[in-house]
């Protein structure tokens, strides 16, 4: 086929191009939050003492750190969705949530007596945590990957992984509302494992679905 002929076919395709990556991703995040929220409401709901809990630093912190993770990953995934190299400084924003969490763990170790460390880390709901965070995260991950297919990432696996961090952060934020284990020691252990699993799934799916 002559290139000129091929260009005829391309320029005859006058259907409006899809949304920009920023727009598609914003919609995906909103949709993911709504679906995760509905699942949370249907499957778990608020914990009975939510009102008192809201006035405790530990409870607020685990929710905030989950949102910080989802937000910082959202900014980064928007950059990854475009066909341009992303600077190291921009990628370092992803450390915001881990640094906050590490600081909280240090403070917790400082304020808690040593014999409380293990019980707080083990908590009461480790299994539930590792189950519900991925359950809440699956739909957000799916819509994010769908949105990213209309982008043009140069790094498919990494982009999928960052989408997994957003989804994991969303799932963690909702699960945190319900979970009675508030210690940063619990969060740093079990939330991290659950979010890491979602991230690994994102990287795997990204490397297959986001090539173009």
């Amino acid at each position: 086929m002559k290139t000129d002929e091929f260009i005829e076919a391309l320029s005859a395709d006058d259907r409006k191009p899809g949304p920009s990556p920023g727009r598609a991703l914003a919609l995906a995040v909103v949709a993911g939050v709504i679906v995760a929220g509905l699942l949370f409401w249907a499957m778990l709901g608020m914990r009975p003492d939510a009102m008192q809990a809201m006035h405790t630093v530990r409870y607020d912190f685990k929710i905030v750190v989950s949102i910080v993770l989802a937000a910082s990953a959202s900014v980064l995934v928007w950059r990854f969705a475009q066909p341009q190299p992303v600077s190291r400084q921009t990628q370092l924003w992803l450390l915001a949530a881990p640094v906050l969490l590490a600081a909280a763990v240090l403070i917790e170790l400082f304020v808690l007596p040593g014999d409380q460390w293990m019980p707080k880390l083990v908590g009461h709901n480790a299994r539930k945590c590792m189950m519900f965070i991925p359950i809440f995260a699956v739909v957000p991950l799916g819509v994010l990957l769908y949105a990213l297919r209309s982008g043009a990432t140069l790094v498919p696996a990494r982009t999928g992984a960052v989408a997994g961090l957003i989804a994991g952060g969303i799932g963690a934020a909702f699960y945190a509302i319900h979970c009675p284990d508030d210690s940063p020691l619990f969060v740093a252990t079990w939330y991290t494992i659950a979010i890491a699993a979602v991230t690994a799934l994102g990287a795997f799916l990204g490397s297959r679905l986001l090539r173009w």
């Binding site: 920009s20 066909p83 982008g151 043009a152």
Partner: peptide
């Protein structure tokens, strides 16, 4: 590719 990714 230019055509299909022009939205980016």
């Amino acid at each position: 590719a230019v055509h299909l990714k022009r939205n980016t």
